[in-house]
Amino acid sequence: MTTQILIAGFGGQGVLFSGKFLAYKAMMEEREVSWLPSYGPEMRGGTANCSVIVSDAPVGSPIVTKPDVLIAMNLPSLDKYENAVAPGGIIIVDSTLIARKVERTDVAVYYIPATQMASDEGITTLANMIILGKLIRVCDAVSNDNLEAALKKVVSARRADMLDLNKKAIELGFNYAD
C-alpha cells in the first residue's frame, strides 16, 4: 500500500518539520519513504509544502500530484490543492485559519482548530504537530506507538525541552473529536 501525503501552509508553520517527523516515523516502522519540499523562493509568510510518500514498495516518483491525504494549514493551500486530492482521500483543515468548508463530497474531511488549540495550550508553534496527530488518527500511514523515538530524530538535542511538548501536541490532535 502507498499513501501520498501533501502538507501545505505558510512558511514558518512547521510544514517541512512535521513532514520530516512523519517520514522518520514511517521509516522506523520499516516502511519505504520519501520527503520532498517545495523549494521556491519562499520564506516566512510565503507558501510552503512538502510531499511525503509512505509505501510498502520502493517509492517511484517522489512528487505528490494526487495526494491521498492533504493537510491544509492555510486558505491558499486548500484553494490550490483541494481538487488534486484523490477521490476517497482525506483532507484535514486547520479550521482556525480556514473559514470556508471543503467543497469536495468524495473525500473524508476533518476540521480541527489546530492553531487555536495550540494557542490555548501555550504551544503556539506546534499547530503543525496537533494537526499531524489528527492525521495519525484518521490515516493508517503510520502508527501512534513510540512517538518519542521518531521525535528524537527531528527535535535537536539543544531543544530537548520541546520533545514532550511535541508529543503533547500530537496527542492533542490524536484525541480531538470533531
Binding site: 520530516k20 517520514a23 521509516m27 519505504e32 519513504v33 520519501s34 520527503w35 520532498l36 519540499p37 523549494y39 517509492v59 517522489p62 512528487i63
Partner: peptide
C-alpha cells in the same frame, strides 16, 4: 537534478 538534491530518503 533539483529533486534529487532536495528530497530526503533513508
Amino acid at each position: 537534478d533539483g529533486t534529487m538534491g532536495q528530497m530526503m530518503e533513508p
